[in-house]
Amino acid sequence: MTNWRSGVIPTWCPGCEDFIIYAGLQNTLAKLNMDQDKTVIVYDIGCIGNMADFVKAWGIHSLHGRSVPTGVGIKLANPELNVIVIGGDGGVYGEGLSHLIAAARLNIDITVIVANNQLYSLTTGQSSPTTPKGSKTKSTPKGVESVPVVPLELIKAVNPEALAQHVSCLEPLKVAEAMEKAIKHQGFDLLDLDQLCVSFGKQLR
C-alpha cells in the first residue's frame, strides 16, 4: 500500500483535532488508492497548513490566503492532477476569501478542505472570519463586532452546482466519508470541518 506519511512527526498540540483531519486524509488517500504521482496537495499557512511536512505527496506550502489560487494554477496547468487544498478559516475565509468565491464560480475540479477552528491559531488565537459575534479573543478583548461568514451558504449562493459539506471533527468517520465524497466529486467542492483548537479555542465549542 502507498505510504502517505513523510516520516516527520506532527507538531500540533496534544489533543488538537488537526490530527483527526490528518488521519482522515491519510485513510481516504489510501482507500481511494490515489495515484501518488498525480496527487498534489496545496497547503495554506496556519496550524493546519503545517501538515505539509507530515504528508508524503507532491505538495506546495504556499502563502497565507493563496492556497486556493495556487491550486487553481496547478489544476489549470495539468488537469490530470488531483488537487487538494488544505487551509484554515483565517487563510481561506479571510485573507483568501475572494479566491474561494472565484474558484467556486469557475467550478474548477479541486477539493478545498478547511480546518475551521474559528480562530487564527498559529498566531496564538486572534479572531477569524468565522469567530461568533461577541467572542472575546486576543485581538478582540471587547468581543468580535462582525457577524461570521457562513461558508456553505456562501458557496451555494455563488455556485449551486458546487459541492459544499460541513462535518465536525467530533465525528472522525464522517470526516473521512466527506473527504472521500469531496475528492470523488467532479467540479469544485468545499469541505468545512469544525475543528477544535485545544490551546486557544476551548471557549468557542
Partner: peptide, 23 residues
C-alpha cells in the same frame, strides 16, 4: 492558456501554481 482571474494576487498565485505543475 490565457487566464483572467479575480485580482493580481490570484494572477501571480495561479502562475506560480502552474509553474509548480511544470508549465
Amino acid at each position: 492558456k490565457v487566464i483572467h482571474p479575480e485580482d493580481e494576487i490570484a494572477v501571480a498565485s495561479i502562475a506560480s501554481g502552474a509553474s509548480m505543475a511544470g508549465a
